[in-house]
Design a protein around this nucleic acid. Structure first.
Length: 757
DNA sequence: GGGGGCTATGGGGGG
DNA sequence: CATAGCCCCC
């Protein structure tokens, strides 16, 4: 047997070696999913498959990079030839060769969310629509939803369900906005993030010059990571590639329904079910053994996820020891939370000899990072924040990038609008509005409309100067490499001299950022491995550079050898693991988010997100919440998150439950099963009642002898209550569990009083 | 017609 | 708390 196969358990090995035909791997957290995927690729290569015949689609650059590194360890340099990357980056790369076949320039621009918002804003202005009624991000998400479901503007207008929904929300014109939006993007030679998928689909589906056959024979083996996060459109592309008459159907999907956290961008669990019916003889493997976390953590995760109604049956178990119980930290304010978390990190570092990189702080929203940042800085703990405002989102950077974008694609309206009067050159709002209106009327881009614009002689000559400037950049772009062009633009556009006038701290920072961007471009030119690494396309043009950064989300610079604490959103943490994890801000209206409160299916998604968060922890898990915090610029008071109450007292360390140090046996914490290998299957996976019928009573009102209703366990009787104030634990006998007793922390539990004493 | 300062509004997750 | 729109002044 090959060495690498020995490192796998039986199920993993079967999943790795079943290389022909459709394969589905359902993989719980920490079950060796990445290992299976990488070894499967290695195994394909060892079995004689050419690396460039393998297509691996992931959701994050990080996952793709990691996979390549791990394949390389097994098969060596050949790993670089595997097509591995995010859906968006792989398709963008292909579209850079093929876009001209479907009516786009090959040097198309990628519009980010800001660009998209701006296009929609302009449409609203031109249509004279009320901006309060027509909320830009609501429209953006409607358009995105339509694209992800392959609904064209025409089909949208004919779809009663969609139209009714819009009418109900008093936004009946969305279908027209959608149509205008699509046209505008097309005329600008621009694709938004959804277009990278949609245009890829169109390319294959319309099949100009037999391009479909080309990619079908190119990609003999297709692997999809995090399949539960794919949307309808992504699945249709996969099907076009592997599902056809005479296909060998060598497709392997890996996923976990319990970790589906992207339905807000159209991901649908239906794809997993659909996969099983679209393909015949699907080989299915379930990876249920968790190699990451200790028992208390695994148990808590199983408990939490059992509150969700729909799920594929599986039971995660671990052979690891019991480990530490989960700590719950109650704080008065968000500031105190920041302090206690950083104190907690210092304490754990000393007590368990951990290094900074063993820690992660996970939050629901990026805005929460600030307090933790402050306290970590105060304590001299190095940290790194992922996500949030990326380097490439900064104003000065976007300004410079807009010049570069315009130099290779003059149709790019958003770039043009951004720099036409930056630095100030006397081309004002009125002129720009006129230009935009004229372009819209003639159905051309703004650049092409300039010569036809009727404005004052002054505005006219100023515009002509601008055109000459951009034309000079265009000419230079032909001769210069990306770095030379960018340096030239920085000087000639006047950006640098403008920024240098400002000698405040921020101003100096902006100049440094511009310099850093130039360095980054230089690095892009010199470095052979930046990007996704396949040397299929070692294109060093400015267009290639712009494409590579358009799809970067996290700071791609993984500083090696630096020891820092990681701060990121729970979404960003998927696929990662840390010895010690702090999940913070566990409050109603925050985690679960206020946006999800009224919709049970969205609450389920928040719960899966919480499940993802706690299963990142290998050994130490700390959950925290604050009674009050600054939210939306004012003090807010939120209840502790319902998710805290879904973890049984047996897995929680009561000593930490409050800062009044209370002795450990307050809870009399019942050991669940002692030393067990496999968790008992939970019979009570289904909810007892419809959540919308459920009205929890204040925990202070719960008293011994009452009949109460619990969301999951159903009706029961309160036998005893022990503990004081915030640490009261009720022992309740539930009918549904054959009158067995459960100990529930009243502080977190949601109980409805049915019958008082 | 363009530029700068003030007020009002909205606020999630990410490729 | 950040950004967009609005109003006033040049």
């Amino acid at each position: 047997m090959n060495d690498y196969l020995k490192e796998l358990n039986d199920v993993q090995r079967e999943a790795v070696t079943a290389i022909e035909g459709p394969v589905m791997v359902i993989a719980g957290p920490g079950s060796g999913k990445t290992r299976v995927l990488t070894y499967r690729i290695a195994h394909l290569i060892q079995s004689g498959v050419a690396p460039w015949e393998i297509l691996t689609l992931t959701f994050t650059n990080k996952a793709a990079r990691e996979m390549k590194e791990r394949i390389e360890k097994v098969v060596g340099q050949r790993a670089n030839k595997v097509w591995a990357g995010t859906f968006h980056s792989i398709f963008a790369k292909i579209l850079r060769f093929e876009a001209n076949k479907i009516g786009y320039p090959n040097d198309f621009t990628i519009y980010d969310t800001d660009d998209t918002n701006s296009v929609i804003s302009e449409i609203l202005k031109q249509m004279n629509l009320d901006r309060k009624q027509y909320n830009v991000s609501a429209i953006r998400s409607r358009i995105s939803m339509a694209k992800s479901n392959l609904i064209t503007p025409k089909a949208y207008a004919l779809n009663e369900e969609l139209m009714n929904y819009d009418r109900m929300n008093r936004r009946p014109m969305i279908h027209i906005i959608y149509e205008k939006y699509v046209n505008k993007c097309q005329r600008s030679g621009a694709m938004d993030f959804d277009d990278l998928l949609l245009q890829m689909f169109r390319l294959l589906y319309q099949n100009p010059e037999n391009v479909l056959q080309k990619y079908r024979s190119q990609f003999q083996y297709v692997l999809v990571d995090e399949f539960q996060d794919t949307n309808y459109l992504q699945y249709q592309i996969i099907k076009l590639l592997v599902h056809y008459e005479g296909s060998r159907e060598n497709v392997c999907i890996v996923g976990d329904d319990a970790q589906s956290i992207y339905s807000f961008r159209g991901a649908t669990i239906e794809n997993i079910l659909q996969f099983e019916s679209d393909f015949s003889d699907v080989m299915t493997y379930k990876l249920e053994q968790n190699y990451r976390s200790t028992q208390h953590i695994v148990q808590a995760a199983n408990e939490v996820i059992s509150y969700n109604r729909k799920q594929i049956k599986k039971e995660i178990w671990t052979e690891k020891n019991e480990g530490q119980k989960i700590k719950v930290v109650k704080c008065m304010t968000d500031n105190e939370e920041g302090r206690r978390v950083s104190d907690g990190i210092i304490e754990q570092k000393n007590r368990y000899s951990l290094s900074n990189s063993d820690f992660s702080i996970l939050y629901r929203t990026n805005a929460q990072s600030r307090v933790f940042e402050e306290h970590l800085r105060r304590q001299n703990i190095p940290y790194k924040i992922y996500g949030g405002l990326s380097f490439y989102q900064r104003k000065e950077i976007k300004d410079l990038l807009a010049y570069l974008r315009l130099s290779i694609n003059v149709k790019d309206n958003e770039a043009l609008k951004r720099v036409v009067n930056y630095p100030k050159r006397g081309i004002g709002k009125t002129t720009i509005d006129k230009l935009a209106d004229l372009a819209e009327e003639m159905e051309i881009c703004m650049w092409e409309a300039i010569p036809m614009l009727k404005v004052s002689g002054r505005a006219n000559s100023l515009l002509a100067d601008f055109v000459l400037l951009i034309k000079s950049f265009q000419a230079k772009a032909q001769k210069m490499n990306a770095y030379e062009l960018a340096s030239h633009v920085v000087k000639q556009s006047g950006i640098m001299s403008l920024l240098k006038e400002d000698d405040s701290m921020e101003g100096i920072g902006r100049v440094e950022n511009i310099t850093a961007l130039l360095d980054g471009i230089q690095e892009f030119i010199n470095d052979d491995v930046l990007g996704e690494g396949e040397d299929v396309n070692q294109d060093k043009s400015i267009a290639s550079y712009l494409q590579s950064i358009a799809l970067i989300t996290d700071f791609d610079s993984e500083e090696v050898g630096v020891d820092y604490v990681t701060l990121m959103s729970t979404h960003a943490a998927k696929g990662l693991e840390f010895k010690s994890v702090f999940v913070v801000g566990l409050e109603e209206n925050l985690f679960p988010s206020f946006m999800a409160m009224s919709d049970p299916t969205q609450i389920d998604e928040e719960r899966r997100l919480f499940y993802v968060a706690i299963t990142r922890a290998e050994q130490y898990l700390t959950l925290s919440y604050a009674n009050s915090r600054y939210q939306f610029g004012q003090m807010r008071f939120n209840d502790p998150s319902r998710f805290l109450g879904e973890i049984s007292a047996a897995n929680v360390d009561s000593a930490m439950a409050s800062h009044n140090s209370i002795s450990n046996d307050v809870f009399g914490a019942p050991k669940l099963l002692g030393n067990f290998k496999k968790l008992e299957p939970r019979q009570e996976a289904m909810l007892a009642i419809d959540p919308s019928q459920f009205k929890p009573s204040p925990s202070s009102m719960i008293e011994e002898g009452m009949r109460v209703m619990h969301l999951k366990f159903g009706e029961g009787e309160v036998i005893t209550i022990d503990g004081e104030r915030d640490n009261k634990v009720a022992t309740i006998s539930f009918k549904r569990l054959e009158d067995s007793e459960r100990r529930i922390m009243l502080r977190f539990a949601k109980l409805q009083i049915l019958e008082e004493n």
